[in-house]
Design a protein around this nucleic acid. Structure first.
Lengths: 101, 101
DNA sequence: CCCATACTTAAGTTGATACTTAAGTATTGT
DNA sequence: ACAATACTTAAGTATCAACTTAAGTATGGG
């Protein structure tokens, strides 16, 4: 679900903001040419994915990044890339070993 | 566009298959409880994202992974995670420096 | 030449996404 | 108490995404 969450540019912008530290909903909304409810919906997706956790204190909700899910997504890619590279190396090795033909 | 492409489980399955080496369209389709045109559409998304390149020889189209885009996506996450960790470190340092209060 | 193979194109359906506006509900400052 | 702030909920619309079936187009083997 993390890739799904990161697929939208507005949500990526929100993540980029939260990388700098916690923010309220309206702080997240400010740079986003979009109504507040629109932002709330994106925030809900980010929370559902586990990328962001929020806590409401008084009338403001504070949002912060939860990097575990970010790490998992990164790891998924890294693992696949590693597999691909391993295969590529085996191929190179094979080509090298049979170059006498 | 890479996150968008990786957001769908069928497309991730296709990527996982291609990590093992090139495959034809029908090889990609085989494990996928889906019609061939359905697979073609996913393949088009993967190609548009640059994650996969294909080449048609005779009547079979061979698909292979292009890891550059995978690396870019990985890097995007790694960069944000690094920023987040840097901020976290600064915070810890700040808390440490002011702990006399 | 003929038929099976391997895709490809077109078109349609369904459901999910990305918004919107309008009308709430709590909290806070005066 | 009252008004402003900070979200929240509900409901509606429009576009996109993920399929489907039906009907093609090459290509390759016999």
């Amino acid at each position: 679900m993390a890739f799904q969450a990161l697929a939208d540019p507005s949500r990526r912008a929100m993540v980029e903001r939260l990388v700098q530290g916690p923010a309220s909903v309206s702080e997240l909304a400010k740079p986003l040419a979009m109504s507040l409810p629109g932002v709330m919906q994106h925030l809900a997706v980010l929370e559902a994915s586990g990328l962001v956790v929020t806590e409401k204190i008084g009338r403001t909700r504070t949002c912060r990044l939860e990097p575990k899910v970010l790490t998992r997504a990164e790891q998924w890619i890294a693992d696949r890339r590693a597999l691909w590279e391993r295969r590529f190396d085996r191929l190179a090795q094979y080509l090298d070993e049979t170059k006498d033909e």
